[in-house]
Amino acid sequence: MTSVTIIGSSHVAALKTAWARISAELSDRISLRFFAAPQPAYGKLRLEPCGRYGLPADADAKDAVTVEKVNGATSVDLNAAEHVVWVSQNSALTFCARLVNKLDVYGDGPAMERGTLVSRQAFSAFLGAHAERALPSAAWGQLKARLMVTLTPRLSETVTGSSDPTHRVVAQAAADGDRLQRALSQYEQAYAQALARNGHALLPQPVDTLAANGLTAAAHCEGSVRLRDNSAHPAEDHAHMNTDFGERMLRALFDRLAGARAAAEHQMT
């Protein structure tokens, strides 16, 4: 039996509903617990040195009610499981989109006069520096449980038709062939390496959930629900993914854990 605690923000809802769907077939092998909170409560969750993760004692009463309602508790002992999966680290989507929109990378097709011509090395260094800044704090390295991080799901490709000006940067980059996809993929590699140097691992978004432009395929955004009460997100929500997406994430996670276990057993023999 492998024990896992999944923590994170509202994006955990997709995994939670997916687990409700598939737990019957896996519960003899996987013990799964969720501890999540929607914003703004999520931003107030803290990791204590003892391994407890949750709201601090002096938390706002409203946040405490939210966290209690979603989880049945206001904190969780992360060391109680073998693995902790942290959903909702920044996907760097906007960061990569800004780079794609403003930079021409030498050798990356003809210069389109987007802005400055940069070398592959410089571009890679920019991604690497961003990845370093996105690492979990040193306190997460003290956990006994093994930490695996997943990035926030990339926005749905439906965002390209959005009139919301906050999505303009991503929509522009997504319209530029596969450059955004390649930048995001390169970022994920840099982030995975940075995490590994700190003893953590990255669980990437499954490739089969992605559209050609690097965003999440539209089908995975339809019918997403809120973490708080399972109510449906509005149609103009391009950020939250549905149960099918959550299931793909969970199966990718379980495959990864099974692979790691098999490798460990092989080493012992």
Partner: peptide
């Protein structure tokens, strides 16, 4: 000869930006 503001200062400066 700019790189986007979101690029970390140390990385930008290391490459002369």
């Amino acid at each position: 000869e700019t790189v986007p503001k979101v690029v970390a200062d140390a990385a930008a400066r290391r490459y002369g930006y």
